[in-house]
Design a protein around this nucleic acid. Structure first.
Lengths: 107, 107
DNA sequence: AGTGTATATGTAGGCTGTCTACATGTAGGC
DNA sequence: GCCTACATGTAGACAGCCTACATATACACT
């Protein structure tokens, strides 16, 4: 998976994976890998800054938790995040339609 | 159309639009707009440098032509460009499948 | 003659998000 | 003691798309 291709779609991925249940960063990475059948293997250096960015933007809310001695920051969607996810889904459909219309034009 | 979303897909778009016939930059921009129903309106500051990059990479071959007093640089796909286009199409399918599997998981 | 729009190409510099590489620490199996 | 998995995070590099600007021809309209 080319890195540049992910550009601008990371937010949608993160919001989507948090739609059903709150997860912490490491679990998010695993969820992306599993849901995509291994195609998406996003490095920590991408995910953690992105989560903070989305939290700053008010789309996620993060909370520290402890599992034994391990610290985890669990993120959940805010209402704004849920709205943003709907927008991202819509944008994704427009995007694939637009690119698809060029790559596979009707013959 | 979010600018970042295009990242890493521009090459595929340019190669694809040149698949059937050679075109010059301005015509390529129009072709992208028409084929996508107006969704893709790529600025010249994106297209011209990208065309030169693809030419340097050996995927396109450019040639100057004159239409009256107007100069045009017409690009055509090279053999390597045709192979690259096939790769880009394949990558596009993988990409949409991967992102789609996260955004619209089977329920 | 002047104005405006379409056609046509190109560069400089900025922006931003993803990546690589590194740093830190806990938990548990062998 | 060592290794792997779990868990979070930062610094800096890199690449490519964008805005804004510069240049020039062709043609319609006033």
């Amino acid at each position: 998976m080319n890195a540049d291709a992910l550009r601008g779609h990371m937010d949608a991925l993160l919001l989507s994976v948090l739609e059903r249940e709150p997860l912490h960063g490491y679990a998010i990475i695993e969820a992306l890998r599993e849901r995509s059948g291994g195609a998406l293997d996003v490095p920590t250096g991408t995910v953690y800054p992105a989560l903070r960015r989305l939290e700053r933007a008010g789309l996620l809310a993060g909370e520290w938790a402890a599992d034994g001695g391990r610290r985890r920051r669990t993120y959940r969607l805010t209402d704004a995040g849920r709205k943003a996810l709907a927008g991202e889904r819509s944008a994704w459909r427009s995007f694939t339609t637009a690119i698809g219309s060029v790559l596979d034009p009707l013959r």
